[in-house]
Design a protein around this nucleic acid. Structure first.
Length: 450
DNA sequence: GAGTTTGAAACT
DNA sequence: CAGTTTCAAACTC
């Protein structure tokens, strides 16, 4: 069901966005396709577009999906609802294997397949109406966001010089997508042409750290919200899987992965002087709407929890003001529950976001500043909330929750201990991975359940 | 745009 | 596993 919901969401967006800016529409479409492809376990793709990162479709999904989608979007745009003409390529693996010098072709093929699926699903009415309704708010926002992105900046990707884009230093590689045109990397091996190398490297990295390509920000299972049940949302539900280790940034800058992911620091963090606006390691939460303000206002951080509570209530108001719209207020919980922020001016979605989820759509190149992230997210949160969790890999849920989670890795160690974890069991994650890497021995059992 | 800072990733 | 180095993003000027 969850998966279906996501797909639906995507589809809906697609439709809505078709008219939107190129960027947005394309992105959205991509995501859709991506999902579809995942379902089918197709392999993938390569991101073709410029803004794969701008929008991440969701949860648990691999970035590759995005990549794929980007092109897909384009394709879909035209074809979408119409015919499923497409490719001659048989979608799946076959396409993946054949490295084509030009990425587009590959993409196209992959995309097409997925696209069709989406369309079919939609048309068939497989998706529940509910989903659609939930998605509405999101869609609207998304649309807006996309527009903004298109207006403002073009998405930028990696800029690797020495890593050959084969290490986690490379955002593209870390996200599981191939580098594409927008990248400014040098000696890049993260391309379809070097598929073998990429896969081998990934395997190597995963052997060292099975969760290396897993979403960095996860939501704990216990916080799984019921759809529409805001009360159950827990601010702390989203956490960085491994925790940060910030020393100087006070977790107030994007150097901090927790902050970058829009989540609060947790007990897993080894940060010093944590002032994370999304939640401090000690459990206190700063509710400032404007993250930047927070930086300036140290006092705020020092406020007692009581004060903080007060802030929480206030926040929503701020949002409204900022947005100048009728956006629903965002309960504190809301802010935190969602995961990622759309920080980037560059359209690059927080990595973790991608994984987590659904929210991906939210992040985008928003022109809003960091703080805005919250705002924008809040818009969608309601509708989206359910999705993220759904997509969350079981493994993450069960093992990675802030409390139990990855703790395998002691709070002090960065590296995640190798698998014995139930990592492999998570269908969603698996599927995402599959898209990218055809198959990874280490996760044999993962299979998308539909 | 160049240079600096930062912290994750990689290495020893 | 701790310490160090490398790296590229984030940030500053």
């Amino acid at each position: 069901m969850l998966r279906r919901c996501l797909d639906f969401e995507l589809v809906a967006r697609r439709k809505n966005l078709n008219d939107g800016s190129n960027c947005s529409s394309s992105v959205m479409l991509q995501s859709d396709e991506r999902f579809a492809s995942e379902d089918t376990q197709l392999v993938p793709l390569k991101p073709s577009n410029d803004s794969p990162r701008c929008i991440l479709p969701g949860i648990g999904l691999h970035l590759n999906a995005l990549a794929i989608t980007s092109q897909d979007n384009k394709n879909t745009k035209h074809e979408t609802l119409s015919s499923g003409r497409q490719l001659s390529l048989p979608g799946s693996t076959a396409s993946f294997h054949s490295p084509k010098s030009s990425q587009d072709p590959l993409h196209e093929s992959l995309t097409s397949a997925s696209t069709e699926r989406d369309v079919v699903a939609v048309e068939s009415g497989v998706l529940p109406a509910e989903d659609a309704s939930q998605t509405c708010g999101y869609l609207v926002s998304e649309e807006r966001r996309l527009e903004n992105a298109g207006e403002t900046e073009s998405c930028k990707r990696c800029n690797c010089k020495k890593s050959k884009c084969l290490k986690l230093y490379c955002e593209c590689f870390a996200a599981g997508v191939y580098c594409i045109e927008p990248c400014s990397c040098q000696d890049c091996f993260n391309k379809p042409i070097h598929e073998d190398t990429v896969l081998a490297t990934r395997k190597q990295i995963e052997s060292r750290n099975p969760l290396a390509f897993a979403p960095k920000v996860i939501r704990s299972a216990d916080s799984l919200p019921e759809p529409g049940d805001e009360s159950s949302k827990t601010p702390a539900s989203a956490r960085h899987k491994r925790g940060c280790n910030c020393k100087k940034s006070s977790c107030l800058k994007k150097y901090c992965e927790c902050y970058q992911g829009g989540v609060g620091c947790s007990i897993n963090c080894r940060c010093e002087g944590c002032k994370n606006a999304f939640g401090r390691k000690d459990g206190s939460v700063l509710m400032e709407t404007e993250g930047e303000q927070e930086e300036d206002e140290m006092e705020t951080c020092e406020r007692s929890t009581v004060d903080k509570k007060m802030e929480k209530t206030e926040i929503p108001n701020n949002e409204e003001q900022n947005l100048g719209s009728a956006l629903p207020r965002t309960p504190l919980q809301f802010c935190r529950s969602l995961v990622q922020l759309p920080f980037s001016s560059k359209c690059k979605p927080p990595r973790s976001l991608l994984a987590i989820g659904s929210s991906s759509g939210f992040y985008t190149g928003n022109k809003y500043g960091k703080p805005n992230i919250l705002h924008s997210q809040s818009k969608f949160e309601k509708s989206l909330q359910t999705a993220p969790e759904d997509e969350m890999p079981e493994i993450l849920r069960s093992n990675c929750s802030p409390n139990s989670g990855i703790k395998t890795a002691s709070p002090n160690s960065k590296r995640v201990s190798p698998p014995n974890t139930g990592f492999g069991s998570s269908p969603s994650r698996r599927s995402g991975r599959k898209l990218i890497l055809q198959s990874i021995p280490s996760f044999p059992s993962l299979t998308p359940q539909h």
